[in-house]
């Protein structure tokens, strides 16, 4: 029976709960929107490649059949014009959420050029630390903000390709139909490049991937003094004085101190 277990857990956790409400690094609505977006992007890119193949922009580039969604062009189009609703509606929800909750302001700003350069340098020398998932470094901020802007641009150009006459005023800002196709394509390329980096880094730092599923560490501006021992699924932020002799890195706590317990 699970009743005794719960009983024994409750007094353990209760005192640790700060009087302020604890929030997860990635709140549930955000996680849901992230994974809906992942599925929508997957549909949009795969079907977009199928549509592209019917009249290529570059003679040297055809997407192989095993990578595209839809055996025939009309299936690719069907998927694309299905996925677009998910992508756009979910995207609007995400942007509204990010702005309304202040998440964008907190997580993506400020972006400082000096930090950006320094972080790129660290990354190239494999000196990046991932001890704190809750703060994005300058490169992450630039990439996340950049991909949001590209996402907006790809929707706008997509709208212009879908309705070049109904939205002729908007389409006219970009140029000819083929120019809009090219911009739409370049936005896709930028998103694919982002995904490659994003997924690679998420796999290199698995706790970040876990955090996007479980919500990650709690954040209320004042992390709990002790890791919550019962919740093993989420790597808790462990704030403890780093043993100075042991750590060569200047950036305090070890990322995986839970392992050592």
């Amino acid at each position: 029976m699970s009743a005794p277990a719960v009983k024994s857990l409750t007094p353990e956790i209760a005192p640790r709960r700060a009087p302020t409400k604890l929030a997860r690094l990635h709140p549930l609505p955000l996680r849901i929107m992230h994974w809906i977006n992942a599925a929508a992007i997957f549909i949009m890119i795969g079907s977009g490649w199928r549509i592209y193949n019917d009249d290529v922009l570059f003679g040297w580039l055809h997407f192989p059949d095993f990578l595209v969604i839809g055996k025939w062009a009309q299936y690719g189009l069907q998927w694309h014009f299905f996925g677009m609703w998910i992508f756009v509606l979910n995207g609007i929800a995400y942007l509204s959420y990010g702005i309304a909750t202040g998440r964008f302001r907190r997580k993506l700003f400020p972006i400082r050029l000096r930090e950006f350069v320094a972080t790129v340098g660290d990354a190239l020398r494999f000196h990046l630390t991932h001890d704190d998932l809750t703060v994005y470094n300058a490169v992450q901020r630039v990439l996340y903000l950049g991909v949001i802007l590209v996402g907006i641009l790809i929707v706008i150009t997509g709208l212009c390709l879908w309705k070049p006459v109904q939205f002729s005023e908007l389409a006219g800002l970009f140029g000819s139909f083929q120019t809009i196709r090219l911009i739409h394509f370049l936005c896709m390329s930028a998103i694919v490049a982002f995904i490659l980096i994003h997924v690679t880094l998420a796999l290199l730092v698995p706790q970040s991937l876990v955090a996007m599923i479980t919500g990650g560490p709690t954040v209320n501006g004042r992390p709990p003094a002790v890791a919550e021992p019962v919740r093993v699924a989420a790597p808790a932020p462990v704030v403890e004085p780093a043993p100075p002799a042991e750590s060569a890195e200047p950036a305090g706590p070890m990322p995986d101190s839970t392992k050592e317990r």
């Binding site: 992942a38 997957f42 795969g46 095993f66 990578l67 595209v68 969604i69 839809g70 055996k71 025939w72 299936y75 069907q78 998927w79 014009f81 299905f82 609703w85 995904i195 997924v199």
Partner: peptide, 29 residues
């Protein structure tokens, strides 16, 4: 995600249920 890409190798678009759903969206469009 990488494994997801394998799904596209076989085209599910022609599956009658999938095709019905996609055509329903197309009609809505």
């Amino acid at each position: 995600l990488g494994a997801l890409a394998l799904l596209t190798g076989c085209d599910v678009s022609e599956e009658p249920s999938v095709q019905d759903a996609l055509r329903a969206v197309s009609a809505w469009n």
